[in-house]
Amino acid sequence: MTLQSVLGQGLALLGVLLIGAAGVGLVRLPDVYNRANAATKAASLGLVCVLLGVVVLAPGVSAVVTLLVAIVLQLFTVPIAGYKIAEAAHRSGAPLAPATVRDERDVPGPEDETGRT
């Protein structure tokens, strides 16, 4: 076992465990918004860790460049995907969990019909 393979496999394992934790969150958390928190962010951070691990393990320059581009792309697209899902949940009237402390959102009314984003 070289240092390279230990480091790479460690990162990959850490990433996979984060993805697994996101899966547990997907099952356990009470409403869509909380689940979106766990599933989009923890999972994508896990994916970034896995890809970094593969960067360490993979041979060759082209593989490393491809993976680095994929990682940057991932970091830029995750927030947008998470926001779009949360917005879709909000617009489709997904209920909040009973445990919610405060709800300041205004329920989408008729005036929202014209303001499509």
Partner: peptide
């Protein structure tokens, strides 16, 4: 924040206190 959420999910018993603020 990552550690906080991971611990929340992996430890038994939910202590989430969600809120929606403007």
């Amino acid at each position: 924040a990552n550690v906080a959420v991971a611990r929340e999910v992996l430890t038994p018993g939910l202590q989430v206190a969600p809120a929606v603020v403007v």
